[in-house]
Design a protein around this nucleic acid. Sequence first.
DNA 1: GTGAAAGCGCTAACAC
DNA 2: GTGTTAGCGCTTTCAC
Lengths: 349, 349
Amino acid sequence: MSSMTYWKRGSLLSIKMIDIANEADVSTATVGRVLHEKGYVSQDARKRVEAAVKKFNYIPNAAARSLTQKKSGIIGSLVIENVGNLYQRINSSVMTAAEKQGYHVVMLQGRNKYRDEELLINQFIGMRIDGLVVITNIYFTDELFDKLKALSIPVVMVERTYDYPGVDNILFLDEKGAYDAVMKFYKAGHRRIAFIGREPFAHVEQMRLDGYKRALTYNKLALEDDLIKIVPSYAAEFGKKAMQELLFSSHMPTGIFCTADTLAAGALQALYEAGKKVPDDFSISGYDNILSKQLSPPIDSVEPDLEKVGEVVVSLIGQRIENPHLETRIKYIDTVSVSRGSITAPNNK
Amino acid sequence: MSSMTYWKRGSLLSIKMIDIANEADVSTATVGRVLHEKGYVSQDARKRVEAAVKKFNYIPNAAARSLTQKKSGIIGSLVIENVGNLYQRINSSVMTAAEKQGYHVVMLQGRNKYRDEELLINQFIGMRIDGLVVITNIYFTDELFDKLKALSIPVVMVERTYDYPGVDNILFLDEKGAYDAVMKFYKAGHRRIAFIGREPFAHVEQMRLDGYKRALTYNKLALEDDLIKIVPSYAAEFGKKAMQELLFSSHMPTGIFCTADTLAAGALQALYEAGKKVPDDFSISGYDNILSKQLSPPIDSVEPDLEKVGEVVVSLIGQRIENPHLETRIKYIDTVSVSRGSITAPNNK
DNA sequence: GTGAAAGCGCTAACAC
DNA sequence: GTGTTAGCGCTTTCAC
């Protein structure tokens, strides 16, 4: 389908099962039995097989296994370049949970410059993955899901919802995360708390805004439009610009809640340029905890319970493999507030 | 070998070649011919095959192809969690170059908490990858390379050298990168330029230190031990600590060259706490350009020519597939200085 | 131009 | 307890 210029692979001295069988003087069936720890094998035969495996450094050909088992043992993880390290940590969490079920996790990374989604989904389908996790910010269409569904490959989306029957979603409790963060400002004494967030292109953003609003309302603070800055992307420059606008407003906030560490990083840049100090002049909080530790000063942030994510992903996939017709599920993962001293009592000016 | 609790996969309605062949009323051989654009196929048959492929959304089973071709068409990319986004960008670059050769890139990510290297290499070997790229900070042993070598899987290490015959290395011109960065300080008027870097656990670090020294020497500046801070890791906290020491020294530097953005981030934290401004009080430069844009203020950094990396990786692998006995090669990739105004003339105090 | 058929390395059902 | 064997889905040689 494409004009590939494959190189031919050199000598293929690869050891196979039959080599192990011969060496151990048994059949391949017996080798299989010891490899998969099922069925009866005499101590004696087992010993010989194990020795042969070790001697030849034998590792089974996954393609062949996949072919006969009608199952690759692979969970695909679709990620996108340049979204900080949160997805890396989520991916690690999925790996840990997947291993316990005998699954491997393979990552395919979309590039920023391209719309790689379809390409990568096709690659995954080619691999006949047994399940797919989609981590953050990937652009999907129904057709892509149709393909996946036709092969009954379970799909779990993390931190993004996509309304397609049978596609399970994992969401972080961002309404609560935002609420808690804003409450920290309130409890520290802040009464004018600004919100810097991205356009609600996805559910997450709306939830963070909702949490912010609920915290204000709960504390009988007015929702003021000029305290709410909605920017087009998470890029730091937009956080900076939003902060600059806040600095120029007639009625400045004392607390700045950002729905992303990157936005907070930008806000800090604006404060830096303006000669304002954190937390002396302004208190601030980020979100996602990907960058906040390295900023000047390190700032408070909100992080999902990452350990949990992997477990939930894998269990959702497992359940749907068993029963593809399960109704769509949405699971919520708790968030944790990380404190670094960037929220203190406001200065009375 | 492990006690897996695989779930059984449900109905496998997966379309296969024979289904396409039947639909198009040809043989599987003909389907193969049109799929791979080789051999003669009549316009008529080709049309029907293409229609059938489209109709069924047919995607060949990679495992089966891999089995018959004795070649997976996969380049493995071994990365490690939590090293910022440089590896993500390198990986993208490799993808772009690999695609042109008909290869796919599959990433396996090592977790921080574990020594995953062996596990992941085994997984790659199981997949019978045709080549392996190792990107940054992975701990290797000769045994691991022995395994890879036994299967004649070409290995390219990026940004790290490992002295094993046949393992090719890609290094960034870090001696020059560091030299250039330090020269920027000099040209701006700095005469006391500090170095904050990691222990030379790998070649890269030594090169960065060498570049620093060469720049000083070239400009007839003395190498002063108390201006050179060697810390145990790239973590921001060490950059901070080193900067604090520099602030307390009797003869403070005016320029701070850090061999990592993370170290620079830490140095900025120290300056922030001390109430010092950049570039008014100190000029500073980071390295790797992973974080520098988001710091307060954004700082100068040094970045490798990322586009090039992928091309070189893939060509090295290709050449070694053709000829596994090539002698070990080391390729150098140029670095580029990124300016953001964090280096200016020093204040005369 | 096109098809038949022999594997690729492994698994699993079945026979012994 | 252990071996035999028939596939898994695809590629590729060799006939026709």
